[in-house]
Design a protein around this nucleic acid. Structure first.
Lengths: 214, 214
DNA sequence: AGACTCGGGTTACCGCTAGTAACACATTAT
DNA sequence: ATAATGTGTTACTAGCGGTAACCCGAGTCT
């Protein structure tokens, strides 16, 4: 068991792992969040136990799969947010990037956002909160970091930035989810409406005649 | 089978139904979203098929249970939003009401927001999107209505109001979810930070020295 | 050569879930 | 008395996540 052999094995295992993840990807793309371990194993041309040897349990496979997509999406978002342009323009570009991604691959999006949380998993510390929506959490934290790094928010800036990060991400998510289901307008319109909201148009709006105004 | 008898049966069925829902409530409060039909039936002192006769399938029971809490919460929110006060004050009161509700009964909140979508349910048209988060959808639509009714948003006000309704609800939801998990600050602080965001403080913030500003 | 470990793979199972078919008892209508 | 109807139970199916036990081929030590 010299090092050469070990790296050999490791590389083989890594290749296998990638194959399995790609097979899982295909199944998820086909079946949505209901993708079963059996189906994934079959798609990969092998049987369940080796899936479990690689990923531990369904949560592990989910985490690995989610990480791929999450990383890819986060990279796109970072790029949009770092492009050389006005602040508002960059905010719009970032919103648009996110919405374009979920529009292009809704099945993957559903898998990431509405995973079918295990049925059996009574014990063994499978915490729902930790796996339920890591994408939202990561986006929220990253955005918080960006906000805190670049904006001058006065005292308590860290806490404010985190609230805003998660809040803005949640706004984007919910609006995107609704929009994806109903397609009530074009992506560009949605982006502009959301940016307007963030830009304080809500506070600036006048009351309608006759009522106390919301 | 005269009418008297029929109403008699109906009333009995309704009473039964309420008992079952209360039992389900207790189980959900105890076990969270993992509550099984078996457990609920046991808690109610009866067996599964009766549950199925009343609610069709798990989705039906979920919907009935969710409707109760959703209606109650929506009533609180409407009350907070309709109180006689300044617009911003009312927005803060509404946010606070929502956050207080999820803080007081996190298990119920988890059940409403992160339901364990059936494991078996391959076919029979159990659409995830329709049951996954009816609370968020309803809140979004209601808020949209309020916004459109009371604010003067110029042309395209309906679409704008709906985007904002869902967006604001999503902001509240995501921030609340994160806050519930980490308890990083008091409820009042969270409320104020979110209201500040809605009031355009993001757009008004100055860039930090040295960077291009987010 | 021959025994021997060892990694990758499969079969066959467990316990659980949602959901259902079929049967049993009581009450009421005819 | 007897048929029908509602109310409940037992006992089952099918499928899930997860695992124990076995199996086989390739390299290794004696």
């Amino acid at each position: 068991m010299d090092t050469t052999q070990r790296t050999e094995q490791q590389r083989s295992a890594d290749r296998r792992r990638r194959e399995l993840l790609e097979a899982a990807d295909r199944v998820v793309l086909r079946d949505g969040p209901q993708a079963s371990m059996n189906a994934i194993a079959a798609e990969a041309g092998i049987t369940k136990p080796i899936l479990y040897r690689h990923f531990g349990d369904k949560g592990g496979l989910y985490a690995a799969l989610a990480k791929r997509h999450t990383d890819a999406l986060l990279n796109s978002l970072r790029a949009a947010l770092d492009a050389p342009a006005e602040r508002r323009e960059r905010v719009e570009a970032t919103l648009d990037t996110y919405l374009a991604a979920i529009e292009a691959r809704p099945q993957v999006y559903r898998f990431l956002m509405h995973p079918a949380e295990g049925s059996t998993g009574a014990e063994q510390g499978f915490d729902v909160g930790k796996h339920s929506a890591p994408l939202l959490r990561r986006m929220g934290e990253e955005l918080a970091q960006v906000i805190e790094d670049r904006l001058d928010l006065g005292p308590n800036s860290q806490q404010l930035a985190r609230v805003w990060g998660h809040g803005i991400v949640g706004m984007m998510h919910a609006a995107g989810d609704w929009w994806l289901g109903e397609q009530p307008c074009s992506r560009a319109e949605l982006v502009k409406s959301l940016a307007d909201l963030l830009w304080g148009r809500l506070a600036a709006a006048g009351d309608k005649i006759g009522g106390p105004g919301f």
